[in-house]
Design a protein around this nucleic acid. Structure first.
Length: 429
DNA sequence: TCTGGGGTCCTAGGACCC
DNA sequence: TCTGGGGTCCTAGGACCC
C-alpha cells in the first residue's frame, strides 16, 4: 500500500501563483474573529502555526502571518492534475480529500515495479509537473502506509525546519517496533474524545491496546471502534482501496462573524443555504430526499432537525421551504453562530418519481408535514427559470445573475444605462 | 472576542413490516 | 387477555478525517 500526501497543499498553491509569497509565513483560512487555519506553509509552522488552529491564536504566535481566504476552484485544478499523475501509476487509488491518496500497488508487483522506485517516480512527477512537494509512505496496509507518509514529511525542530526523507517504507520486521511507541491518538479514527476515553482506561499507547480484549473495549468505545482498534494494535488493517466512492451527501455550513438573532434572520440566511445546496445537487445531476438543518448556538451546543421526503428535490424554492419548516420547528433560545443545511438520500435525477414544488407561504410549524403542494404550472416555470439561470452562470460566471438573497453571498454588479456599480458581499444594493 | 467547512461513519431508539 | 426475532428506514446526536 502506498499513501501520498502533498505538503501544505493550499498554502503551496498560493505561493506558486504568487511567488512574492515564497519564504513568508502564509496560511489559507478564515481571517476573521471566528476563522481557523486550513493550511499553513512550513515557514508559518516554524512559529507553531498549524491547521485547525484559530486564526487569532495563529496571529498571536506570528503577527506577520499572511492569511489568505482560499480559492478552492484553483486547488481543485491542482488536485485533478495530482490525481492524473497517480492514475498513471495505478488506477486502483483512493483519494482522501484534495491532497492525499492511497494506492494499492499489488498490480504493480506483477509488472515487477519496485515500490520504492514507484514512490520516487511519483514524487518526482509531482515536483516536476505541479511544482509541489509531497511525502510518500509505503507499508503492508493503509495503517502503516499512512503512518509512514507522516514520517516522510519535513519537521519543525526548535523553530528550525528539518527536511524529511520524502519516502518512508515500514518493512514487515519494523512494524511492531513502530506500533510500540505510538500514542493511540496517532491511529486513524482516534480523535480527542476517544483518546480521552482510552486514557481513562489507562490505555495511552498502541501497545496498551493489545492487552485489552475487544469486548471490554467495545463496552467503552462501541463495537465498530473496538474492532478497528484491536486490529490496528496487532498491525492488522483490512480496509481496502475503494477506487470510486459515491458521494452520499452535500451541504453548506456557515459560521457567522456575528451570530444571528431571531428566527427571521435565520430564515433569511437559510435562503442562501438552500440556493447553494440546490446548485451543488444540480451540478451533480442528483436530487435529494433527506434535508437536515443544524444550528449551533453561541454556547456551542447544537441541535438538528431532518426530514425525508418520498421524492427528491434539487430546486432552491422547494429546498428553502423544507429547510425553513425545519428551522421553525426548532426552539432558537440563543444566538445562532452556525447554520448548516445538508442534503442526503440521493436519487438519480432521471429516477425521481415526481418533482414537486412548494407553496412556500403555506409552510408554518403546524403544517411541516403538509408542506408539500403540487403545483404543475409553477413547477414548469421554476424549472425553466432555474435552467436559464444555470446556463447564464455557466456562460458568464457564477455571480452574473442571482436571487436577491444570494447577493449577500457573492456580491453583484448592477448595470444600468447610467453605468455600473459593484456591490460586495453583505451589501444590499 | 478560541475553535471552519467539506464530508464520512457510528450509535441508539422508535416505528414498522413479515 | 399475550407477544419473538429479523430486518429496514428514519431521526438525533456525536466523533472523526482532511
Amino acid at each position: 500500500m502506498l499513501h501520498v500526501d502533498l505538503d501544505a497543499f493550499f498554502a503551496s498553491v498560493e505561493i506558486l501563483d504568487d511567488p512574492s509569497l515564497a519564504g513568508k509565513p502564509v496560511c489559507v483560512g478564515g481571517a476573521g474573529a471566528r476563522g481557523v487555519i486550513a493550511s499553513a506553509s512550513y515557514e508559518a509552522r516554524r512559529y507553531g502555526v498549524h491547521s485547525a488552529m484559530p486564526s487569532v491564536i495563529a496571529l498571536r504566535m506570528c503577527p506577520d502571518l499572511i492569511i489568505l481566504p482560499g480559492r478552492f476552484e484553483r486547488y481543485e485544478v491542482y488536485s485533478r492534475r495530482f490525481h492524473d499523475i497517480i492514475n498513471d501509476l495505478t488506477p486502483n487509488y483512493e483519494p482522501l480529500g484534495l491532497d492525499e491518496a492511497f494506492c494499492d500497488l499489488r498490480s504493480l508487483r506483477r509488472l515487477s515495479v519496485a515500490p520504492l522506485e514507484a514512490a520516487a517516480r511519483l514524487r518526482g512527477r509531482i515536483g516536476d509537473e505541479l511544482g509541489l512537494l509531497s511525502g510518500v509512505g509505503l507499508g503492508r496496509n493503509k495503517l502503516f502506509a499512512k503512518l509512514a507518509s507522516k514520517r516522510s514529511k519535513p519537521r519543525v525542530v526548535n523553530g528550525g525546519l528539518v527536511e524529511g526523507p520524502g519516502v518512508v517504507w515500514v518493512s514487515r520486521d519494523l512494524e511492531s517496533a513502530w506500533l510500540e511507541e505510538l500514542p493511540v491518538r496517532a491511529l486513524w479514527g482516534v480523535g480527542p474524545a476517544t483518546a480521552a476515553k482510552l486514557e481513562k482506561l489507562g490505555l495511552r499507547y498502541v501497545r496498551d491496546l493489545a492487552l485489552v480484549d475487544e469486548s471490554t473495549l467495545a463496552h467503552h468505545v462501541g463495537p465498530a471502534m473496538a474492532a478497528s482498534l484491536s486490529a490496528y494494535a496487532k498491525g492488522e488493517d483490512f480496509r481496502e482501496v475503494v477506487a470510486q466512492r459515491e458521494v452520499k451527501s452535500v451541504g453548506h455550513d456557515q459560521t457567522f462573524a456575528r451570530s444571528l438573532e431571531g428566527v427571521d434572520a435565520v430564515l433569511e440566511a437559510m435562503k442562501v443555504h438552500a440556493a447553494v445546496v440546490a446548485r451543488a445537487l444540480r451540478g451533480q445531476s442528483r436530487v435529494a430526499r433527506t434535508f437536515t438543518v443544524i444550528v449551533r448556538f453561541d454556547d456551542r451546543t447544537s441541535v438538528s432537525r431532518s426530514q425525508t421526503l418520498a421524492f427528491g428535490l434539487d430546486d432552491e424554492v422547494g429546498i428553502a421551504a423544507i429547510a425553513g419548516a425545519l428551522v421553525q420547528s426548532m426552539e432558537l433560545h440563543n444566538l445562532v453562530r452556525l447554520l448548516a443545511l445538508h442534503a442526503s438520500s440521493f436519487l438519480e435525477r432521471s429516477r425521481n418519481a415526481m418533482q414537486l414544488t412548494f407553496a412556500i407561504d403555506t409552510v408554518t410549524p403546524d403544517t411541516r408535514n403538509r408542506a408539500v403542494e403540487v403545483g404543475r404550472d409553477r413547477q414548469v416555470g421554476h424549472e425553466a427559470l432555474r435552467d436559464a439561470v444555470d446556463e447564464i452562470r455557466r456562460r458568464f460566471g457564477r455571480t452574473s445573475v442571482g436571487t436577491a438573497s444570494e447577493l449577500r453571498e457573492d456580491g453583484v454588479t448592477i448595470v444600468t444605462q447610467r453605468g455600473s456599480h459593484a456591490f460586495g458581499p453583505e451589501q444590499t444594493p
